[in-house]
Simulated scan of single mutants.
Amino acid sequence: MRVLHTADFHAGRITRGYDRTAELHDALSEITSLARTERADAVLVAGDLFDAVNPPAAAEGIVYEFFLRLKELGIPSVVIAGNHDSASRLSGLSGLLGWVGVQMVAELPADLTRLTRTIETRGGEKLVVGAVPFLSERRLLRAADLLGQDVGAWRQKFRDGMGQLMEYVGRSYQPGAVNMMMLHTTLDGAKPSGQRSITLDLSKTYTVSGMQFPAGTQYAALGHVHKPQGVGDAVSAHYPGSVIQLDFGEGGEQKQVNLVEVTAGRPASVTAIELSSGLELRTLRVTHDNLERRLEEARSFRGLLKVVVDAPAGTALPGLKAQVLSVLPGVLAVELNAPEPSEKVTPFAEREGLSRLELFERYYAQKSGALPDALRAAFVEAQQAVRAEAAEGVEA
């Protein structure tokens, strides 16, 4: 059996004001073509079809077109809702989507047996998928906080509850079938884009352990983390990642879908298939000294660019964004990385004997750099005015 696993479309995504709909349309068309050429028996989509609960019409159009194309190829799919999706909205569409071969699981049903979905493949094999949609841990945390209860204990309850739910769903696994689990969640040890580790500290984050997958799980199809990776050793559990680079933290990541080849009762073989759709996102780090040269070198770049200018603490560079955009009008973001200077009190001995103008120059230099001539002249003029008023007061 050959199953194509994908996730995290985030249709409707706007990156720093730039609409990504056309790129995502290309990526979904590419995945449809791969489903055909790789002779996929089924497609699993592990959540976050959309970037927001109320997506624009164009975003809905490209996602539903994707499922229509799969229907034309005779390829069924199982889909779960992610944390960015409107669970109620997708639930309302589940009946219509069923007509094009989509088994949608968007909300936790009263009858938990409905979390198990079965596909009879063209080759006569059976695929059983325990499809668990995103369950909002934030609501759980909010309830615990309002009740004045131990938040850490509630996080552990979430973890335990997810384990019990997966164990229950695993009871529907069938001998002689291929048995998989699909979730939109964070698994222990997963690393999000930017290489920031997700720790196992349950007081800070909700995670599920790879040891909690029920016996007989041949593959765990995961969504939620955008960095493609395999996680854990107990079960073959994988995040295919987002299908295009969605933000600059994902710059440099090769996007992919997973082709899972598996037969009943045997370990799954997972092959990453690279995607070519979507613009490359890149962060260009420069200094003010080499800014112009580096911008000229980047003229040939055809992706989406963010420019970060590193400067000494307290540096102000007025007109920086205009300077960058005059060379590269397509830059999406310009950031100045100049940390706030540490507040230091000048010892009295170092201030003794300095004029007010010299003290002001030192203060201004600590905050903003060299004192402009116009501001120096204004300060001197203000000093003279104060002295004149003081003299008039003495004479009176």
Rank of each mutant, 00 (worst) to 15 (best):
S277T: 00
L295G: 02
G130S: 14
Q164C: 06
P372E: 03
H10R: 10
K321M: 01
Y219S: 06
D48V: 08
G330T: 12
D48L: 05
R362C: 09
G176F: 00
S193E: 13
K227D: 14
R39V: 10
A391Y: 03
A316N: 12
A374T: 14
E297V: 00
P240H: 08
P347D: 13
G95V: 12
L291F: 05
T116S: 15
M104S: 05
N337S: 15
G251Y: 04
E392T: 11
L141Y: 01
V102H: 06
E250H: 00
E340W: 03
R117Q: 15
L187P: 03
T15Q: 11
V225Y: 04
V327H: 12
P329H: 10
L28S: 12
D310G: 11
S197C: 02
V78T: 09
G170V: 09
G278K: 03
E120T: 06
G123C: 05
E352P: 03
V78E: 07
A7N: 07
V53C: 04
S88E: 15
A391K: 13
D41M: 08
E280V: 07
V129S: 13
S276E: 02
S326N: 15
E395G: 05
A7Q: 03
G163P: 07
R387P: 00
Q256I: 06
T199R: 11
G241M: 05
R142F: 04
G194R: 01
R293S: 14
L112M: 07
G161M: 00
E65A: 14
E392P: 05
G216N: 08
S236N: 02
S342A: 15
H84Y: 01
A57H: 06
F379G: 13
P76Y: 08
L246K: 01
V225A: 09
A81L: 10
E395C: 04
E274N: 02
A131P: 14
G319I: 08
A396W: 08
R362P: 07
Q229C: 12
G265L: 01
W154F: 05
E392M: 10
V262N: 08
I198L: 14
R138I: 09
S33F: 03
G223R: 00
D8C: 08
S326T: 09
D160A: 02
L304Q: 03
S355E: 00
G241V: 06
P76Q: 10
A237L: 10
L96F: 14
A177T: 07
P267Y: 00
S136G: 06
R171V: 03
